[in-house]
């Protein structure tokens, strides 16, 4: 059975314009799925709707089942329970996703206390383990630091530690590396890849960057103007795109990739 099943999802704003139309996809336990699209394609909205976190003013229709819970129709209390326990989200901008008035350690402790009922020494240990898991070495200092005292990469690691602290079965990553430098992006992608592997977490990765999603996901859906235009294993999408839009997207990515030639890369362009 799928962990997340989205069927015929449509999202409208309050004046009735469709932002997402008839989107269907599924994420099985341990699966790694990419949602690819450019700004305004509806990829982030679809992902937010999957966890019942649509911004106010937007309404979703269709069916979204996360671990069997109807994320459109169920009461908020049930949806909140599923959200923390089953699925969590990492956002693009860790500076706005983290509470600026709370230390990194306390932010990570939050979900651990809420969902696993840890306290005292056990909680402190769990926080340290969570920080070590995202390869933050100076756990003592970083646990006591406020978000603005950390670098962009460190903040995103804290956000990932927070998201994974309670061992969710699905991690939704919404452009988690777009705001970061290339070298930091590479490290974070690597980290996500490894963590998701170790814990068997399913991953829904949202991005506009084809090469990035190719690094972490296996299957992918290409979205454009609120619809899924093509789906399939990411290798096939890149090698043999059939939809005209996917073709443009692949061509664009190939342009820059080819310009780099075989330079030091892990594989050469066409």
């Amino acid at each position: 059975m799928s962990l997340l099943t989205v069927e015929g999802l449509s999202i409208r704003n309050s004046s009735g314009a469709a932002l997402v139309s008839d989107v269907s996809f599924a994420v099985a336990p341990g699966d790694r799925t990419g949602l690819i699209g450019e700004s305004g394609s509806g990829k982030s909205l679809s992902a937010l709707a999957s966890v019942g976190l649509l911004p106010p003013g937007l309404t979703a229709t269709g069916s979204v089942r996360l671990d069997g819970v109807d994320m459109i129709g169920a009461p908020e209390r049930r949806r909140t329970g599923v959200r923390g326990r089953v699925a969590s989200v990492v956002f693009q901008e860790p500076l706005t996703a983290l509470d600026p008035l709370m230390t990194a350690g306390r932010q990570i402790a939050g979900p651990l206390r809420r969902f696993q009922g840890l306290k005292g020494e056990a909680l402190r240990t769990a926080v340290r383990v969570a920080l070590e898991e995202v390869r933050l070495t100076d756990t003592e200092r970083i646990g006591k630091a406020y978000p603005h005292q950390l670098s962009g990469g460190q903040r995103q690691r804290v956000a990932i530690a927070m998201a994974l602290a309670c061992r969710p079965r699905l991690l939704i990553a919404d452009e988690p590396t777009t705001a970061l430098d290339v070298t930091v992006q590479a490290e974070i992608l690597d980290l996500l890849d490894r963590l998701v592997d170790t814990h068997g977490t399913a991953l829904l990765f949202i991005t506009h960057d084809l090469p990035v999603v190719a690094k972490v996901a296996r299957g992918a859906h290409v979205m454009r103007m609120g619809r899924i235009v093509e789906s399939g294993p990411i290798i096939d999408l890149i090698a043999r795109p059939s939809d005209p839009y996917t073709q443009t997207l692949v061509e664009s990515a190939r342009r820059f990739d080819a310009a780099l030639g075989g330079a030091e890369g892990d594989s050469s362009g066409s």
Binding site: S14, S15, G40, P56, L58
Partner: peptide
Amino acid sequence: MSRRPAAPGRV
């Protein structure tokens, strides 16, 4: 991106 939904603005 940071696009606000149009309708509440109009209200």
